[in-house]
């Protein structure tokens, strides 16, 4: 894309995109660390995820400020306007994803050792897919890559079916092992959090698609097939 006649405008847009990328990187790390803390029963790592979340919130505030400034001072148009609005909406979503990662980390100390709860083994794989969707949505924004954004949306159902499988497995496990109900409840919430992260990545990808093309992706079926 050609540069703006006003160079400072390009610099501000680049700074904005840089902040979104930094925030996204932090959230991806938060999710990975939260899952690692869960699998390794590492309470220290879990605490760090919780305390690092504050930096994500600060980045969101910084992006909001910059977006307001760009709109007020530069009156962006067309693809610039779509880019700036997408950045604003994306950081809102990324901040929520950060909260889900934090919520997962917060549950780690309450779970104790649980090598026996079998369905747990599915959670890291599920989180892996959701995390990749988040990463790809952010990469799609950085590269204005509509095809990559579309591919993220197409993957949402993978996370959904993970969730449905884990949900059923945990229910069965709870019935058979009533003593593990409280731990299983935590794991259910974690699965739900990951499922929500997948949804948010999908929303983000839809915004990226609009920012890149000016068109909306065809509406997906609203019934997502989630069991609860």
């Amino acid at each position: 894309m050609p540069e703006h006649t006003i160079k400072a405008f390009d610099e501000e847009i680049n700074r904005l995109r840089g902040l979104v990328a930094e925030m996204g990187g932090r959230v991806e790390t938060a999710l990975e660390d939260a899952m690692a803390a869960l699998v390794e029963h590492d309470n220290d790592k879990a605490r760090r995820v919780v305390s690092e979340d504050r930096k994500i919130d600060l980045l969101e505030a910084e992006v909001e400020k910059l977006v307001v400034q760009i709109i007020a001072l530069r009156a962006p148009m067309a693809n610039d306007l779509r880019d700036v609005i997408a950045a604003l909406k994306i950081v809102g979503v990324v901040e929520r994803i950060g909260d889900y990662a934090k919520n997962i980390a917060k549950r780690v100390p309450q779970l104790g050792a649980h090598p026996t709860i079998e369905p747990l083994s599915l959670l890291p794989a599920m989180a892996q897919v959701a995390g990749e969707m988040v990463g790809d949505a952010l990469n799609a924004f950085a590269a204005r890559d509509a095809a990559l954004a579309e591919a993220v949306v197409a993957r949402d159902h993978v996370v959904d079916s993970f969730y449905n499988g884990i949900f059923r497995a945990l229910l069965t496990y709870m019935v058979e092992n009533p003593k593990t109900i409280s731990e299983c409840a935590h794991l259910l919430f974690i699965a739900k959090n990951i499922e929500r992260i997948g949804d948010h990545a999908t929303n983000m990808a839809e915004m990226v698609y609009y920012a890149a093309t000016g068109d909306y992706l065809p509406e997906r079926g609203r019934d997502t097939g989630i069991e609860s």
Partner: peptide, 19 residues
């Protein structure tokens, strides 16, 4: 036109990328 122009020349002009 101002949110989603179809032509590159329009886009470059309204976004301040002209010449």
């Amino acid at each position: 036109i101002f949110t989603n122009p179809r032509e590159d020349r329009t886009k470059d002009y309204i976004t301040g990328r002209y010449g």
